[in-house]
């Protein structure tokens, strides 16, 4: 059994689920939905920001407000999404053909995988940061009803951006006609 699996250079024992090949229509629909999810995430956050600003002059019993700390996770997630989707997917495969013709020691594949890791780290950091901001700033001091919603909006924003990036990744990976899978 292992010898059968190791023939294609896979590292993990369990095979990754093969991403199904979508048609051209489903691909475009995936990209549309990805953009829509990105907009939904940012609009949830904008809602929280606008409500916080509206509380300033309406009532005096405002206990907490949306500050720059709440912006940081969303900015990190968006930055990570930009980094991930700027990488050329063909350069991640590595072993098929090499771009470094001048014999440089640092290969393109290595840099591309490092950038991919940095992008995923930014996105995961954004999601974790949003959850920690929600817990520390909004839930533990136990403010009332409208304030906790602002923290939840932050988590919804980052989760939506993460799902959007995943959907864009899947849609772009199915664009090539030939069989193409990551055996990570």
């Amino acid at each position: 059994m292992p010898s059968q699996w190791n023939t294609d250079g896979r590292i993990c024992r369990l095979p990754m689920p093969r991403i199904p090949h979508l048609g051209a229509k489903a691909r475009d629909a995936g990209v549309y939905v990805s953009g829509g999810l990105f907009a939904v995430g940012w609009w949830f956050f904008m809602d929280a920001v606008i409500c916080s600003k509206n509380f300033d002059d309406v009532e005096e019993q405002k206990r907490v407000s949306v500050e720059f700390v709440d912006w940081v996770p969303g900015i990190c997630s968006t930055l990570g999404m930009i980094i991930i989707n700027c990488i050329d997917k063909a350069s991640l495969r590595g072993d098929s053909f090499s771009f470094s013709s001048s014999g440089s020691s640092v290969s393109v594949t290595w840099v591309a995988r490092l950038l991919l890791f940095i992008g995923f780290a930014f996105m995961a950091g954004g999601l974790a940061g949003s959850i920690s901001v929600m817990c520390i700033k909004y839930i533990i001091p136990d403010y009332g009803d409208p304030f906790t919603f602002w923290g939840i909006c932050n988590v919804i924003q980052n989760a939506a951006i993460m799902v959007s990036a995943a959907m864009l990744w899947i849609a772009q990976n199915t664009e090539s006609e030939y069989e193409y899978s990551f055996g990570i």
Binding site: S34, G35, G36, A39, V40, W43, M46
Partner: peptide
Amino acid sequence: YFLTGLMIITGFCLPVV
């Protein structure tokens, strides 16, 4: 496509917000 999807959802989210 991404920007178009973003704009469509923005058109629906803006009145809600």
